[in-house]
Design a protein around this nucleic acid. Structure first.
Length: 506
RNA sequence: GGCCCGUUCGUCUAAGGGCUAGGACACCACCCUUUCACGGUGGUGAUACGAGUUCGAAUCUCGUACGGGCUACCA
């Protein structure tokens, strides 16, 4: 039985961005494929906890994408609690164990002292000096201080952190499922803080302890974690759990137009980077999400999965079930992928055409409601949606493409009619009204046939009458085939609109 | 600066030593359609550079360049 762990942290400003969701998605696909469990842990550190609603927001996003964890992280379960803040004592225990075993040490340096060290040692060649094996002997910690003094400081309640004691020159390597063997030398790794002054663990300690205790077998995370992987390997070793170390895969980054995709890019270039709308509770700033923009979750998941992965064929449209079947972590690219909004739109368009309109009608109904159109007749509504679906890229486009079915045009694109408008055409439409009044049949092909015959009889090319007819019915040069529109509108409404337009064209 | 990761059309990518380097998005043209789309046909467009290995390199090796990431008591 494999257990796949997914880890994510709401950033202090919240939001769940593309890279994060793709990581969750790959975890999910892998877990499902291997009949494993899909677990979330929550990193509600001091940095992130203040954001009220962030947890719920994340679950909502994942639910929208169809990525539900097997064990509710909020309730707990066999391996719970899942919230980092509720596991504080567990981490402390292991941190102390590391100190006792000589793999970590207490450090009493104040932030000011650290800053001074970094400032004093800063040179052009080394702009960011690290707390490492060269420096630790010059700092205030349990390696430099004698036992009595250390005890005094600890008993006296002096704020301290626990740092890992990274060996001076050791070659480390691990096998990455995407990149193969990755090598490091410990001489460039600094003595990372494991337990902070407030008693909370850093990511490094938490992730190792949790993965072990939660029996995680596979861990996928973003490439930005690659440089700290040696610290984690070391911890697995020092805690004596090396045999249980999960298999890692470091996913390539999703890039924006310049560098790692950011919320800034969303603002600057006008595309979403979050799954759903996110309002920063501190600033009140709203960042639009893919859902609200009018994306279907099917399309969202599809293009996200394909950003850095493909199955080796030319297939691009995949349903989740198909992704589960065909996904393979080994085929994930090692290079970062630039997010292409145009392509994302294409996926959405494809999915809108592909899915039966009934599967998203309620969302579209809501969009109409937001704009003041209440849908009463569901049957007609479905028909209308089907009529326009192929020209919609976003769910919101359904409004633009079909609002005229529910509201007669208030104004007309006169520029498109006027120049070629004349008495003959006016007479045509007058007689057309008479003709359709007299008939009982109301069906697209029949209307078209009658329309064209009448035009021929009056010696006008039918083509020249179609555009005016369209503008009469919808107000402009848009919408599905004009006789289909008339069919859906119904006889009475069609006559009324022609009459109204005739008056406006005069 | 150091370390790590990467580099095939503008973008996402296929091709794992052997065809004219294939597909998709975007763009352009034509066809269909007197709206807009959909659909169809075609087109522009790439192996970063330099060495090496080899009968043969996008593919393997090395160097250079470029891009990205990390370098916090953030994740």
């Amino acid at each position: 039985m494999k257990r796949v762990r997914v880890r994510f942290a709401p950033s202090p400003t919240g939001g769940l961005h593309l890279g994060g969701i793709r990581t969750v998605l790959y975890n999910y696909l892998f877990a499902r494929q291997h009949n494993g469990d899909f677990v979330l842990r929550i990193e509600d550190t001091d940095q992130t906890r203040y954001v009220s609603g962030a947890e719920e927001y994340i679950f909502d996003c994942l639910a929208w994408c169809g990525l539900k964890p097997d064990e509710s992280p909020l309730i707990g379960g066999e391996y719970g609690p899942y919230r980092q803040s509720e596991r504080k004592e567990i981490y402390r225990k292991y941190a102390e164990q590391l100190v006792a075993d000589g793999f970590a040490y207490y450090a009493f340096d104040t932030p000011e002292e650290l800053e001074k060290m970094r400032h004093d040692l800063k040179t052009e060649q080394n702009p960011s000096p690290q707390y490492d094996h060269r420096i630790r002997s010059k700092m205030k910690n349990s390696l430099t201080l004698d036992e009595v003094e250390v005890k005094k400081l600890l008993d006296g309640g002096t704020r301290y952190v626990i740092r890992i004691k990274v060996p001076e020159n050791e070659d480390l390597s691990f096998d990455d499922m995407i990149r193969g063997e990755v090598h490091f030398n410990t001489s460039i790794v600094d003595d990372k803080v494991l337990l902070k002054g407030d008693g909370m663990p850093t990511y490094h300690l938490a992730v190792v302890v949790d993965d072990y205790l939660m029996k995680i077998s596979h861990a996928f995370r973003g490439e930005e974690w690659l440089p700290s992987a040696p610290v984690h390997v070391l911890l697995w070793k020092y805690l004596g759990w090396q045999k249980h170390m999960p298999q890692w895969a470091h996913l390539p980054l999703i890039l924006g137009p310049n560098g790692k995709l950011s919320k800034r890019d969303a603002l600057k270039y006008g595309f979403p980077v979050f799954a759903m709308n996110w309002t920063d509770p501190k600033t009140g700033e709203l960042t639009e999400g893919f859902r609200e923009k009018g994306f279907l979750p099917e399309a969202f998941v599809n293009f996200l999965a394909l950003l850095g992965w493909n199955d080796g064929t030319e297939q691009e449209i995949f349903a989740v079930e198909e992704l589960i079947q065909k996904f393979s972590i080994e085929r994930v690219h090692s290079g970062g992928a630039k997010f292409d909004y145009e392509k994302a739109k294409w996926f959405n368009h494809e999915w809108i055409k592909l899915l039966p309109v009934a599967s998203y009608q309620s969302q579209v109904k809501e969009i109409f409601a937001q704009r003041g159109i209440m849908i009463s007749d569901e049957r007609d509504f479905l028909k209308i949606l089907a009529l326009v679906s192929e020209r919609c890229t976003f769910l919101t486009d359904f409004y633009d493409q079909s609002h005229f079915f529910f509201r007669a045009p208030l104004q007309y694109d006169l520029n498109a009619v006027k120049p070629k408008w004349n008495e003959g055409k006016k007479r045509f439409f007058e007689s057309f009204i008479e003709e359709i009044r007299a008939t009982d049949i109301w069906e697209s092909a029949f209307i078209e046939d009658g329309f064209k015959k009448l035009a021929m009889m009056q010696d006008i090319k039918p083509g020249e009458l179609q555009l005016p007819f369209r503008i009469m019915l919808v107000g402009g040069k848009f919408g599905p085939p004009v006789f289909d529109i008339a069919t859906v509108l119904g006889k009475e409404e069609t006559i009324e609109r022609i009459q109204q337009a005739l008056a406006a064209f005069a």
